[in-house]
Amino acid sequence: MTASRIPPADGTVAVVTDPARPPGRARPARTTAKQIRRSAWLFLLAPCALFLIFVLLPNVIAAVLSFTDYAIVGDTAWVGLENYARIVDDPYFWIALRNTAYYTALFVPMGFAIALGAALLLNRSRRAVRLFRTLFYVPVVSSTVATATIWYWLLNPQRGLLNVVLGWFGIDGPAWLYDSEWAMFAIVLMSVWATFGTNMIIFLGGLQGVPRDLYEAARLDGANAWQQFRYVTLPSLSRTSFLVSTLLIIAAFQVFDQAYVLTKGGPGNSTITMVYYIYDKGFGALEMGYASALSFVLFLIIMIFSIANAWISHPREKRKAAPR
């Protein structure tokens, strides 16, 4: 489509302006600058159009909806801040928020530590590294739904692999997904298992950028392995750590698939997450106005945590970025 349109345009521009060509190289540069500008916008037409229709417009609509009682069917009225006021008094919102906070509080540090640990393990020049890198990454490839069904079987209280293995060590495993105390923790375990590979690869990239001579210098100063990690590796990774923790926080607050597939929010509402609740309100109860308000509240929460995370990581990052 774009192909057929551009060449004639180029041709005509070149022909029309050719006779007026002043000596030297200045003129072709000017016409091509114009052509380039036009082509650039043409090339970006599809992403820009889709951005307007499916990012910008939806955000505006969501903002408007959140002040109405829109429900697809029936009349729609402007309700002002009523939806937001209702959120404060909605016990399920607080349950969902508490569950999501619990999930985030476990998932982010665990996901971070295990990804970093695995990356440290793999950060050496051995031939076997590539094999193990692949094996560590394999869970990432399956979908969250497939992961959930795998773990649904794995976590089966009587015959699941996990409780059978725990039984070998004399541990009587909990009923996991059927126990309101353990269900969310099981979902955390499953999510960490399924996603740490991606962050491990990101950390590996970061580790390979740490200058070797820093370790040499630390060793000369008599630093042990822990000190090298604490004072060389960790500070050098601050940018990568910031990226990984941000990705983890954004993902954690939007957990949905596992809770939907495995527990439908149960048992005893212990796995209702924010996105699950918004989905349920918006597409189950069709209270789209209220659901939009909820989604903005979630957006706000994610932003606050991301900014807090940036604020915590910032001083270190600055110190590191300065000498570059």
Binding site: F51, I53, F54, V55, L57, P58, N59, V60, I61, A62, L65, I250, F253, Q254, M274, V275, I278, Y279, G282, F283, M288, A291, S292, S295, F296, L298, F299, I302, S306
Partner: peptide
């Protein structure tokens, strides 16, 4: 736009 959680645009995108 990569930073905006998908959940915000979910309902409006459905309506569009």
């Amino acid at each position: 736009s990569l930073m905006i959680p998908g959940i915000v645009t979910m309902i409006p995108s459905f309506l569009i």
